[in-house]
Design a binder for these strands. Structure first.
Length: 482
DNA sequence: CGGTGGGACGATAGCGTCCCACCGGTGCTCTATT
């Protein structure tokens, strides 16, 4: 360990250009270097990629990073290239033909391999990794292990077996938000004993984000409220919806009702268009994004001033992920949830899974019935049967998941209806206590939402014809003031 | 909740109206021959 000391600091300065570690980083890296399996829950912007990159330079062998999105892999690969690292590769469906065979044949030559869980579940790929010395297995956005599967991206539930097939390499799990229960669930689903894992947790509290809930009487009232908020705070801002259609409609409506540039972002928008919207938002050519939950992971804009929820998110973890995209620059920001009675029905509808009777599953497994009898979710259930999950086990997993989703929805509703401090509520949910109350905490703490000082980069009157150049100028001044 | 699409029904021939049931979100994969 001792000759690591010098090297760690040298690498930090020379390779990464940092003077010192940020909170949680050093502890995590030391646990990894100490050959421990590690779970790190660190807020976004804490520098999570350093946690596997630095050890990657100290260990012999290849670091495998499991990532849920191709765009996230691409970002990381680009970043490593810019740092001068060329022994990096991204292994996913975009890599095909001879190029793919070449990469698989020379896996050991790469220091960092980014891969999707689906690709890593592939037998050919697993066989290729059998010939490689794996120095570290990283699961990025590790909350997905708990959040996804059984009903979405089932390969996440194969990671335990995949890890075993890879020879149980030392493992690093990274996420920004995980309650104690989710942390436990992640470890259980990875087949790791809690006693065997170093857990590093930083507070999820974001003191510069004011928390508010606005009760409305229905859709029309909500829309009015939304328009007023958007006119007041201008941007940059994000508005979350639970349906694609409404996200698109509201984007068009806000465009017609304000002087702002607004775009819709959801999975129904083409990849090219989504990329363009993201770029324009980054460059402040777009001020407002009307999005579904598709928008978020990998968004690295530090001056988002507000996040408004037009609909409920599915739970408090997702809520925190979504509002956590505001105020990364540390400046005062605001999170407002617009609620009207009955909104929870949309979420409940979205998360309802029909589980076939165990008997039917068993008959499909035996080939006595065609998978089609399993209905719309036939592929999903077939997947588990093919991977030797017992029918009873599948049914139990889905039923448990269903109960969990309902429980989480109830806890979210308790937050919405709470008349106590919202920050305390969230922190308790994440197993923490409030250490210091910020001056602008939440709408239940006397603080008046209208007095929260939100500095917008485009604070002009919508009717002002000079709005364009005036806001341009203000933006320029903002930039040079920093 | 709010929006939508299909079917039934009525009053009378080409269509309007009403009611009810249903739905809403997230992404990866794609492999070839003897």
């Amino acid at each position: 360990m001792i000759d690591y000391e010098k090297k760690i600091n040298q690498l930090l300065h020379d390779q990464f250009g940092f003077a010192r570690f940020r909170p949680g980083q050093e502890e995590t890296i030391r646990a990894v270097l100490d050959h421990r399996n590690t779970l790190a829950v660190l807020p976004t912007g804490a520098g999570k990629s350093l946690l596997y990159q630095l050890p990657g330079y100290l260990f012999a062998g290849t670091v495998i990073i499991i990532s849920p999105l191709i765009s996230l892999m691409q970002d990381q690969v680009d970043r490593l290239h810019r740092q001068g690292e060329s022994a990096v590769v991204m292994l996913n469906g975009q890599l095909v033909g001879p190029e793919r065979r070449r990469v698989l044949g020379q896996l050991g030559r790469f220091r960092f391999v980014f891969i999707s869980p689906e690709m890593l579940a592939n037998e050919t790929v697993l066989a290729a990794f059998a010939r490689v010395k794996i120095s570290l297995l990283v699961v990025d956005e590790a909350h997905c292990i708990s959040q996804w599967g059984p009903d979405f991206r089932p390969e996440y539930l194969l990671l335990k077996e995949i890890r075993h097939r890879l020879g149980d390499p030392r493992t690093l799990l990274l996420t920004a938000t995980a309650t104690p229960a989710v942390r436990q669930d992640i470890l259980a689903k990875m087949g790791l004993a809690a006693s065997d894992v170093a857990v590093i947790v930083q507070s999820v509290d974001r003191s510069n984000i004011f928390l508010a809930v606005k009760n409305t009487t229905g859709q029309a009232d909500k829309q009015e409220e939304l328009l007023a908020l958007v006119n007041k705070y201008q941007g940059p801002g994000v508005i979350y919806f639970a349906s694609r259609k409404l996200a698109s409609q509201m984007a068009a409506w806000l465009t017609s009702k304000t002087t702002l540039n607004v775009a819709a972002y959801h999975a129904g928008v083409t990849a090219v268009e989504r990329f363009r919207i993201q770029e324009q938002f980054m460059n402040n050519q777009l001020q407002v994004i009307c999005a579904t939950s598709a928008f978020g992971m990998g968004i690295d804009k530090n001056d988002i001033r507000y996040v408004i929820h037009f609909h409920l998110p599915s739970n408090l973890e997702n809520y925190l992920q979504e509002i956590g995209r505001a105020g990364r620059d540390g400046k005062q920001s605001i999170a407002i949830l617009l609620y009207s009675a009955g909104d929870e029905l949309i979420q409940r509808q979205l998360t309802t899974i029909t589980v076939p009777p165990v008997e039917i599953l068993a008959q499909v497994k035996q080939g006595k019935l065609a998978p089609a009898v399993l209905g719309e979710q036939a592929d999903l259930f077939s997947f588990y049967l093919q991977h030797n999950f017992a029918p009873a086990q599948i049914a139990r997993a889905f039923n448990r998941r269903q109960q969990q989703l309902e429980r989480e929805l109830q806890q979210l509703l308790a937050y919405v209806h709470s008349d106590g401090c919202r920050r305390e509520y969230i922190l308790h949910y994440f197993g923490e206590n409030l250490r210091a109350r910020p001056s602008y905490c939440c709408d239940n703490d006397e603080a008046d939402i209208d007095e929260v000082p939100i500095e917008t980069s485009l604070s002009t009157h919508p009717t002002d014809t000079t709005a364009d150049w005036a806001s341009q100028l203000r933006r320029l001044l903002n930039i040079t003031e920093r």
